[in-house]
Design a protein around this nucleic acid. Structure first.
Lengths: 245, 245
DNA sequence: GCGAAGGCTTGACCTGCATCAAGGCTCCGT
DNA sequence: ACGGAGCCTTGATGCAGGTCAAGCCTTCGC
């Protein structure tokens, strides 16, 4: 386990220094849960929202803790971690810009969320958010849509973890991650991968060695090129075909 | 692939012959989505519902088909199947009494649902149900609750598939299946398992041989006894401990 | 009652990925 | 510029579970 330095530990979370962002002018609004809100509702929402920045490796919340907040991610990458008592780790997802944490409105967090790189989020008190959802059925409906999409994606991941080999898993990760990034940015073939090999391994049910070897293999076969902190897809179609199994 | 006999194919779905059941008098009402409905709403709901019986191996709906209906299971066991193009199979869940199929309100089914044994279900036209959900926020809320519980469970399953060994997987399946059965029946230590070893294997990301060997091993260690179409847990606590990993 | 089919178990062997090990690269702090 | 830490890659070896194969049991149609 990496030791968290004094700086990192004390720095989380922090308020952004620059002029405060705002729900009405927010650029990721239409990508996030806020897409469900009308202008007056956005103003109301803005009252609830706390903007926070989480430095790399800092913890947004811990599995099992009281779920006092829900989160909308506006920048960065967050890993969602489940741990077994003996230290085995499974990453159940990576949250990026536009993603929502706490869809379930559960009373306690069901996984730990840790910033991979510097993450900017809108943090909303659970109670206030839930009240608003109870009053605005279209917000609840949006929340349900998000949960449904995640459920679908987690079924994909069950197929991956239960039935795909290492090469298919890595290919599927690259393609699905690219698709998610493409929705919120203009990235299409060069995919930034801020997370470590260890994170990817724990997401795919593999070891770092196997992830590393598999990426090397894909590069040797000229399907991808490894670039600093990411990969470039040379043949997205063949990778997608691999990913399908 | 097993060949479906003429009888089985032609028999699905069929209306139950005996006097028609009814939402208001329904005994599994408080276990299902209907728990969210008031008495007058139940009467309304009853107008929408079609009671159907699906014989073993019959298909309730096919992955990719238009999602014309949602379902509430009142009896029996249903396997939820994802297929890869080369025939590899992953079962993403087993639905039992009280479970709801179609939580996502998606336009197309994201998996195939097949009756394992004889399954009785309430089938509700998608459109009518969705309209009702849009008009009754507490129904939508219940639906969201169900989706959230399933999302949580699918995260558990990701940990199982990504990080647990065969023995832990089988133990976890037995415990989680027992807990789900216990909620809707009085079964606690003798667990009926109407699904085949092959179904269990495809649910746990293993092969039938490994499932069979692992069950034999648990029996040899006096943790369970294999009974016809099920198992009896001799030491539920130790099995639960195994399941946790 | 009999034979065939399907499902389950068990044994023998094989392999894909894990594990163990070593070395290289990059980034920092001094 | 140097040294150490963290991360990544690559090679050698091991093993859990997959694959192949055989036999048993139960069910069911005739």
């Amino acid at each position: 386990m990496p030791v968290v330095t004094r700086e990192e530990a004390s720095a989380a979370p922090r308020k952004p220094a620059e002029h405060i962002p705002n729900c009405v002018t927010c650029k990721t609004r239409h990508l996030s849960i806020c897409a469900a809100l009308s202008s007056p509702e956005l103003v109301m929402f803005d009252q609830l929202v706390q903007h926070r920045e989480f430095p790399p490796k800092s913890v947004l919340f811990e599995q099992g803790a009281a779920a006092d907040f829900v989160f909308s991610v506006s920048e960065g990458t967050i890993r969602l971690v489940r741990l077994l008592s003996d230290g085995r780790r499974q990453i159940v997802g990576f949250a990026i810009k536009g993603d929502f944490l706490g869809v379930g409105l559960e009373s306690h967090y069901e996984f730990t969320a840790e910033a991979v790189d510097t993450a900017r989020v809108c943090r909303i008190p659970h109670h206030g958010f839930e009240t608003m959802a109870d009053e605005k059925p279209h917000l609840l409906r949006k929340l349900h849509e998000i949960a449904s999409r995640e459920l679908h994606h987690s079924h994909d991941q069950m197929v991956l973890l239960g039935r795909k080999n290492a090469e298919e898993r890595v290919a599927a990760f690259l393609i699905s991650h690219r698709d998610r990034l493409a929705r919120v940015s203009n990235c299409t073939v060069t995919i930034p991968l801020p997370m470590s090999r260890s994170d990817i391994a724990d997401y795919l049910g593999l070891t770092i060695e196997t992830v590393s070897r598999t990426i090397s293999k894909l590069a040797r076969e000229k399907l991808i090129v490894v670039v600093p902190d990411g990969v470039r897809l040379l043949d997205p179609d063949r990778i997608a075909a691999l990913a399908r199994g």
